[in-house]
Design a protein around this nucleic acid. Structure first.
Length: 274
DNA sequence: CTAACTCCCTGATAGC
DNA sequence: TGCTATCAGGGAGTTA
């Protein structure tokens, strides 16, 4: 599923196509997503409004309208957003469709329905409240080695799960957590509290480097992910450990290990990562 | 409080 | 071929 890089690539694709457009109507499949679709708010605050710009926070896409309301979309595990001619027959699992003033339709397709669509009414407090628990963006100044070490405190949780905690830092999921730890030369199971300040420095640097490279490669496509134009990403070709159990480490040839941490597959090189 | 487990859902794949 | 079990990029709620 989409982690920060994939969501950012979708945002970059949608922004120029949506900015300035007016939403003239909306239809739905009737299926619920992670939460019920807020139909009344969509009708009241999104339909009839012009799109100002498209932003991203954590793994959420924010479509900001000129009336100061925002359409918030989370892609879950299998969500896709794309623009299609309104006359084209909807595909299977197209759950929401917003018709635009240029004959196109923004469509949200989500096989597994772990996605989320919410409307934030005008006013800064709603967005603030929505992201109250969300940690800093990896590219922000607030995300630093000192911050990480303070946040880790006495936590015995594995550093990999710590990195995937959206309250610690936004946007890192299961693929990039393994990749970031490989780039940081840190074992994924190390308790967060045992990570030194210098190792936190490596983590911050690796987070930014890996996420930046993944965005530049259009994201990682394992099974479902496609960008707003329906194209897959190609960062999967550069993965060092994720999904490579038993294959030779690209640095030292040691077979890549797979363990399960908090129910998630975790990949690492037992020789390069200590 | 912390951290792991369970569940939401569909579909691909492996094994029998 | 067809059945069943397992697994998948997220995250909220529950449990110990």
């Amino acid at each position: 599923m989409p982690e920060l890089p994939e969501v950012e690539v979708v945002r970059q694709g949608l922004a120029p196509l949506l900015a300035g457009r007016i939403v003239v109507g909306f239809s739905r499949s009737g299926q619920r997503l992670r939460a019920p679709v807020p139909v009344a708010l969509l009708q009241q605050l999104i339909v009839g409004q012009q799109v100002k710009d498209v932003d991203r926070r954590a793994k959420y896409i924010l479509i900001r309208m000129k009336n100061k309301a925002s359409l918030v979309i989370h892609l879950g595990m299998s969500g896709r957003l794309g623009l299609f001619p309104a006359a084209r027959k909807p595909a299977k699992h197209d759950h929401l469709r917003w018709r635009l003033d240029n004959g196109l339709e923004l469509r949200f397709n989500d096989t597994r329905r772990f996605g989320l669509v919410q409307v934030l009414p005008p006013g800064p407090d709603h967005e603030k409240e929505f992201f109250r628990q969300t940690g800093p963006e990896p590219f922000s100044k607030d995300f630093s080695a000192a911050y990480l070490q303070k946040k880790a405190g006495n936590r015995q949780q594995a550093i990999k799960n710590f990195l995937m905690d959206s309250r610690v830092v936004a946007g890192i999921g299961n693929i990039y957590a393994s990749e970031i730890l490989f780039a940081s030369r840190l074992a994924p199971s190390a308790p967060a509290a045992t990570v030194s300040l210098d190792e936190h420095r490596r983590l911050v640097k690796a987070c930014r480097q890996i996420l930046k490279r993944a965005i530049a490669s259009g994201g990682t496509t394992i099974a479902d992910y496609l960008n707003a134009g329906g194209q897959p990403g190609c960062f999967q070709l550069q993965l060092m450990v994720y999904g490579r159990e038993g294959q030779a480490c690209r640095q030292c040839k040691t077979p890549i290990s797979r363990i399960v941490l908090a129910g998630r597959s975790t990949y690492f090189c037992s020789s390069c990562q200590k």
